[in-house]
Design a protein around this nucleic acid. Structure first.
Lengths: 335, 335
DNA sequence: CATAGGCTGGAGAGCGCATACCGCAAGGAG
DNA sequence: CTCCTTGCGGTATGCGCTCTCCAGCCTATG
């Protein structure tokens, strides 16, 4: 493993010159001839800079860290994709932590990341608003930020950092309006856990929009955020007369509900219409097509990177766009 | 930002003692009283070790790197999930690179990783066997390995490193046998690109097993590896009389084919049976259920970590298990 | 022709930590 | 009671690099 001083020696220059030639130095230049000699020496020795040494000498690292609930979840995977591509444009190494939803393991991870002196931290995925570890998580985050790590969150603006805000409210409103326009009048909401801001935001914005548009919304029971929860929630809804539309606050819930409907022999949208939120890839192959609100999650990742690494002063929060995807599952309003 | 020497000073001990108290030292112990004093001082100062400095002093880092084609793809996301959880058990930081399928950008990434002096590298996802950048990729990989990085691959055993081998051959054989047992006789294969080993392995193993079981296999045309490719391949198949079964070498191809079949008004499995490979989550919500070969990709990630970080001498290659998932899409053989 | 000022190369001081080595004290064996 | 061993704390070196400071040269200017 050759070092910079090997390169310098071989090129017949000083360590300082070799460093300047290979990695540049603000406001300094190296005579082209020496520059070339150094570069050739580096090539001949197959020199690779030692990132840790650079980090130490420079006093800052070039790694960015992404914290997600579950990297196996397509939602987070898609964010990771955006983060990875954007970070590579900044020459940053991306480190990944998949911590689950609880606050406590996150605190542990944050401490490891503090040791890394990471340049930026992006947190995707919320924590339950009533998680007992929340104060410690906030404190750990605050410490990181105080020490120079730029923090941004995606869909967790309540933490008080730069944030990509999901179009929960605007998207849910737009969806509700569109469904009313289609002629639907009675709605049930499968809301997911009520201690997760994104699902409760979607649910309440949807309900408000429906009511102010003259529709009715049935009370709903909190649950999980995945297919199984959707299945169970739908199961409970089956005991009462069905509404025109079941709105699930995310796609997985909607898919779980769909499964229960199929098992009950009910047709979508003839017997009941169904809508989700997120328009994740999981909807791609389902028949009938499920109405949903498309969020460009890759773009969310990109924006978050931009907010932390971009040099131009970025706004502290940025609202992600959305697109309504009206599909067969909500019919054409001829009901 | 307090340093170890701050801690030592506050605790009234030397730097060395503080280091030993906080991070241990092989074969050395610290008197319990001093140990406690150091720990308290660290707590009071909110001391965090400087990972780069430790890396430098120790001469090795504790980061593991995962290289995938596309982290947004559920297959890779699932591997990443396994890798992340296993790596955290080893106290390793995971860095993620999502490089696409081409060899050349991978070489660039490998150079960055070389600078990181990473402890282990896990490569998931193959490269085309005829990629012009392949020799350079091999060379870069070899250099990394020579410098002490432990390399493992998932589904790319041809690179010559420790490897988790996908059950392409055994799984495809088992599937073919099962389909023959169901009474199917004529098969078409949607094989994906023929320069990707996993798809060509599955295709040829499947074809061999079918033939030796008395069935017939139609020649197939290479294509991509995603839904669009499956759609187009199915489109071409529609011009000829349909076989009993269409086997796609991965699930996304199968889903693309399914879409084309639906558009053509053909029913699965009544008009034609359909099978995929991988049993990814994408199949979860599709009706009818698609027969596939389940691979535990999370486990693959875990195994790869074990092979690189585990201290006990690991076998150089490990074959991933599989499970046949026979579902409605291949009928019950009453045809 | 003298001198200021820009350019560029080199010397050297750290960055924060682990660890080899040294020294001292206490305890056991002879 | 002495000598050797063992246990443990401290000192100091160096990991590989960046960057500040200084010195030399060359050019421009009065």
């Amino acid at each position: 493993m050759s070092t910079l001083s090997d390169v310098a020696q071989r090129a017949g220059v000083s360590l300082a010159t070799a460093s300047r030639a290979l990695n540049g130095s603000p406001g300094r230049t190296v005579r082209p001839e020496l520059q070339a000699r150094v570069e050739q020496a580096a090539r001949e020795l197959d020199y690779q800079p030692h990132a840790a040494a650079q980090t130490m000498a420079r006093g800052r690292s070039n790694s960015l860290s992404l914290l997600v609930n579950d990297i196996g979840d397509p939602y987070f995977a898609s964010i990771a994709s955006g983060v990875a591509s954007a970070a590579s444009r900044f020459g940053c190494i991306v480190t990944l932590s998949s911590t689950g939803v609880d606050a406590t393991p996150r605190v542990a991870v944050l401490n490891m990341l503090a040791a890394q002196r990471i340049r930026a931290l992006i947190i995707a995925g919320g924590v339950a608003t009533d998680d007992p570890g929340l104060p410690q998580l906030s404190a750990a985050l605050r410490r990181l930020a105080d020490r120079g790590t730029r923090v941004a969150t995606i869909g967790a603006e309540q933490l008080g950092f730069a944030s990509v805000v999901l179009p929960n409210t605007s998207g849910a409103e737009a969806l509700a309006t569109a469904l009313l326009d289609l002629g639907h009048r009675s709605f049930s909401i499968i809301a997911g856990p009520d201690n997760r801001t994104s699902s409760s935001q979607r649910a309440s914005a949807f309900a408000d929009a429906v009511r102010s548009g003259g529709g009715t919304v049935a009370a709903n029971q909190p649950s999980g955020f995945d297919r199984a929860a959707g299945y169970q929630a739908m199961d409970r809804l089956l005991t009462d007369p069905l509404p025109d539309v079941v709105f699930a606050t995310n796609d997985l819930l909607a898919l779980g509900a769909l499964r229960r409907l199929r098992e009950a022999g009910l047709r979508v949208p003839q017997d009941v219409a169904l809508a989700g939120f997120g328009d994740s890839d999981a909807l791609l192959d389902v028949e009938p097509g499920i109405t949903s609100v498309l969020m460009d999650t890759e773009e969310a990742g990109r924006l978050a990177v931009e907010m932390t690494l971009g040099d131009n002063a970025q706004p502290r929060t940025e609202v992600l766009g959305f697109e309504l995807r009206l599909r067969a599952s909500t019919g054409r309003g001829q009901r």
